[in-house]
Structure formats: structure tokens, C-alpha cells
């Protein structure tokens, strides 16, 4: 019995090592100087250049136009992550409320029209989506960055499932007390959904923050770059340089992963609940 438990721990520790070691190495290496990394390879120890490297990455005006800083990219990433999560929650709660709590003729039609969006990920319709965005003049705007991503119906389905699980008696009681659709929504349904809203917010924030392809197409003005979008620029600048700025690349990677990882770790239980229940 004890031996099997011992091997269980060995396997789990190996798994943890496999998952975490690359991240730790990335962080440790980012604290060394570029020349040092070029000479000695990746690092497992603290390098002592943490302050200057991260300050450099966050405040230096870089890029082709020389006006975008790391701090600006951090801000853009937050705008995309939070804007996307908030937009998703508002749109999908309203739509799910209409579908579940109202009797109207086109209800089923709308339901299927929203449902269909789950069939096609953004990746298969990038080119026409891009053309639509140019026609609407939304290239290089925050609207163009955020709103088209809201077109998928994941959130709507999640709230639909949740609203359906809310006991019917609540609505009956509320109606007897004279509550209308607005009052019921604001005073009963939203407070009931608080945990669900938090869970969805976390998942969507991570999803929005991590977007890559869409920001890459929608923004060629560097002042709209997000951190994840900026990764590609690092690599393109790299080609042909003598000693690549390994340290700064790693620092960017660490900055780009830190907020979503922290959010997931801190709000772990909500996040797991939301993830495993929404995707059913």
C-alpha cells in the first residue's frame, strides 16, 4: 500500500516538474544578461539583473515606430481581457434571459442562430472577417479588437444552462409579488448568478488576454499591440541580430503569462467549476 502511494507521488512530482520547470527556467533566465545567456545557455539560478531587464522591457520605447512600451502592451492586454470578459457576460446574460424566460414566436429561431456560431471557430473565417472589419473601418481600434470576438455563443449557452437550473418557483413567487421582467432580472437572477458570473469572467479574461491571431490581423499600429501579440515582433526583430535579447524575450513571456496564471491560481475553485460545468 505504502509503496503504491510512494510511486503515485513520484509520478505526480514528475508531472509537476514537466509542467513547471520550463516556466521556472524562463523566469530565472530572464534575470540574467543577454551575453551571459548566449554564452552559457538557459539558467536555473537567480541572475541579479531582474530590475534592469524588467524596467527596460516595461518602459523602453521600442518597436518600429519607437513609441510602444511594454507597459502600454500590458495596458492593452488588460483592456482586451477585461473588455472581452465584461462584454461577453453582458451580451450573453441578456440573450440567455430572453431565451429562457420569455415566450415569443422567434425564440427557437434565435436560439439556433446563436447555437450555430459554436460550429465555426474564428480561425476558419479569418480572411472574410478581416475584410468586413476593413469595410467597417474598425482596424486598429479597441472595438475591432474586442467586439468580433464576442460573436461566439459559449457564454450564452453557459447562462442558458444555469438559468434553466434555477427553480421555477422563484419566478412564480416573484410574479405573485408583482415583480416585472426587469425587477426579476436585477433583484433575483443577477444575485443568484454571482458565482457563475465570476467563473465565466475568469475563463473569458484568460481567453481574451491570450488571443493571438485576431489581434495580429486587427492591429498593425503598434500602440494597440497586446503582450501576446508582441511575442511575434520579438521573434521577427531577432532574425539577424548578433546576440539576441534572450533575457528581454523571456521577460516579455513572463509578463504575458503572469496575470492569467495568477487569476487562474487564485480563483482556482471558481475557474474549475466554471470550466467543467460550462463545457458540458
Amino acid at each position: 500500500m505504502h509503496r503504491t502511494k510512494f510511486f503515485d507521488h513520484v509520478i505526480l512530482l514528475a508531472g509537476v516538474f514537466l509542467m513547471i520547470a520550463p516556466v521556472v527556467v524562463a523566469f530565472m533566465t530572464s534575470t540574467h544578461a543577454a551575453a551571459e545567456i548566449h554564452r552559457d545557455g538557459l539558467m536555473l539560478t537567480w541572475g541579479g539583473h531582474f530590475d534592469e531587464t524588467y524596467r527596460e522591457v516595461l518602459t523602453r520605447q521600442g518597436g518600429f515606430t519607437g513609441k510602444v512600451t511594454g507597459a502600454r502592451m500590458v495596458m492593452n492586454s488588460f483592456i482586451l481581457g477585461i473588455g472581452f470578459a465584461a462584454g461577453k457576460i453582458v451580451l450573453s446574460m441578456l440573450a440567455a434571459y430572453a431565451i429562457v424566460y420569455f415566450r415569443f414566436r422567434l425564440g427557437v429561431v434565435f436560439f439556433w442562430m446563436i447555437f450555430t456560431t459554436l460550429l465555426l471557430p474564428l480561425e476558419v473565417r479569418i480572411l472574410p472577417s478581416y475584410e468586413v472589419m476593413t469595410k467597417l473601418g474598425l482596424v486598429n481600434t479597441y472595438t475591432g479588437l474586442i467586439v468580433p470576438l464576442l460573436a461566439s455563443a459559449t457564454g450564452t449557452f453557459f447562462f442558458r444552462q444555469f438559468f434553466k437550473s434555477v427553480p421555477d418557483e422563484l419566478l412564480e413567487a416573484a410574479r405573485i409579488d408583482g415583480a416585472g421582467p426587469f425587477k426579476f432580472f436585477i433583484d433575483i437572477l443577477i444575485p443568484l448568478s454571482r458565482t457563475m458570473i465570476a467563473a465565466i469572467f475568469i475563463i473569458m479574461f484568460v481567453y481574451g488576454w491570450n488571443q493571438y491571431l485576431w489581434p495580429m490581423l486587427m492591429t498593425n499600429d503598434e500602440s494597440f499591440y497586446t503582450l501576446v501579440r508582441g511575442i511575434k515582433q520579438i521573434l521577427l526583430v531577432w532574425i539577424g541580430s548578433q546576440i539576441p535579447d534572450y533575457n528581454e524575450a523571456f521577460a516579455m513571456a513572463i509578463l504575458a503569462m503572469l496575470p492569467p496564471v495568477l487569476v487562474v491560481v487564485i480563483f482556482q475553485s471558481w475557474f474549475i467549476k466554471g470550466l467543467t460545468e460550462s463545457d458540458k
Binding site: M19, I20, W209, N210, I231, A253, V264, V265, Q268
Partner: peptide, 11 residues
């Protein structure tokens, strides 16, 4: 074991 979930694919 779950924290790598939050890392973006390009990162």
C-alpha cells in the same frame, strides 16, 4: 499542474 492552462499558445 493546472497553471500552464493559462499560458497563451504563442507564449
Amino acid at each position: 499542474l493546472i497553471c500552464v492552462y493559462a499560458i497563451a499558445p504563442p507564449v
